[in-house]
């Protein structure tokens, strides 16, 4: 037992294969960050060159420089719009989390409840929100409530279906064990089902984060009416009517960036909650 260890301590023996493996790992580490940044920079550079070389007028395709300038010049208006969209997105996501998890818990507590209400959830999910939105804005007076409702309809389903799946995925031996030790319904839910469902829920949250942004933007397109309290989608529409293409791009970039930030936060949350125990978040050695 100790002989090879002592040998290793005196002169580490590294064979060719391991050296190659180490080099490949180092390369991977660098490429993981540098490659996406490089490609993104390249794409922006090409965009710029295409505009310049072909003399494309800015009302058809603005170059990246002009878009950035517009972003800075119109920041006052765009940041207000960003704030409105962000507020609706986050509120919708919050309601989707509460509603999705709440419904999922009810579904798993009663099979009959699930049988009775699951069809409604599916119908809401499969009907395109653009086709429901006009009706919503007819029946709901408050513009904010209408927007929120649209975004919620789009966002809640992945949370509902993922969490339901997770709550039903408990280990059957653990379920037996809980039964033997006389666990109450509440104890089983709190100590067994909810922790089992957590990774599933977080997977749903990542999808729902993006969807609530999409829901908020689509709802704004449909709601249309401008004035105070208009979000990014309305600014895009408005800029489109005025052929202000650079501003359209600037607003578009803000929407995309918002989506990326939401996704990043959801991923970080997922990592923070799971890295100690869940397979998906554990780095494999060798």
């Amino acid at each position: 037992m100790s002989a090879p260890e002592m040998h290793a301590a005196q002169a580490p023996v590294v064979d060719q294969e391991e050296l190659q493996h180490a080099r490949a790992q180092r390369r991977d580490k660098i490429a993981k960050w540098s490659l996406p940044i490089l490609m993104l920079a390249l794409a922006i550079f090409l965009w710029d060159r295409i505009v310049v070389w072909n003399d494309i007028p800015h009302y058809i395709l603005p170059g990246p420089g002009l878009v950035i300038r517009t972003l800075i010049e119109d920041w006052g208006m765009l940041s207000d719009a960003l704030w409105v969209t962000l507020k609706i997105t986050l509120m919708a996501l919050g309601v989707a989390v509460v509603g999705g998890v709440g419904l999922a818990v009810l579904f798993t507590q009663s099979r009959y409840f699930e049988m009775a209400f699951y069809p409604f959830a599916v119908i809401l999910q499969v009907t395109p929100v653009v086709s429901i939105a006009p009706l919503i804005f007819i029946y709901v007076d408050s513009r904010l409530a209408g927007l929120l409702l649209c975004a919620w309809i789009v966002a809640f389903f992945p949370i509902l279906s993922n969490t339901t799946l997770g709550l039903n995925s408990t280990d059957h031996n653990l379920r037996d064990l809980y039964k033997i030790y006389g666990a109450t319904r509440w104890q089983r839910l709190r100590y067994l089902q909810l922790p089992t469902a957590l990774p599933y829920f977080l997977g749903g949250l990542r999808i729902a984060g993006g969807l609530s942004l999409i829901g908020a933007v689509v709802a704004e397109y449909v709601a249309g009416t401008g004035g105070i309290g208009s979000g990014l989608a309305f600014r895009i529409l408005e800029a489109g009517y005025r052929l202000n293409i650079p501003r359209m791009f600037a607003a578009l970039i803000l929407i995309a960036a918002t989506g990326v930030v939401i996704f990043t936060f959801a991923s970080l949350l997922s990592h923070a909650l799971l890295h100690k125990w869940h397979e998906s978040a554990i780095k494999r050695e060798n």
């Binding site: 031996n173 653990l174 037996d176 064990l177 033997i180 957590l198 100690k276 869940h278």
Partner: peptide, 11 residues
């Protein structure tokens, strides 16, 4: 009770 699997809660 001890099952064939360790049946521990991973979290």
């Amino acid at each position: 009770v001890v099952f064939q699997e360790p049946t521990l809660m991973p979290w």
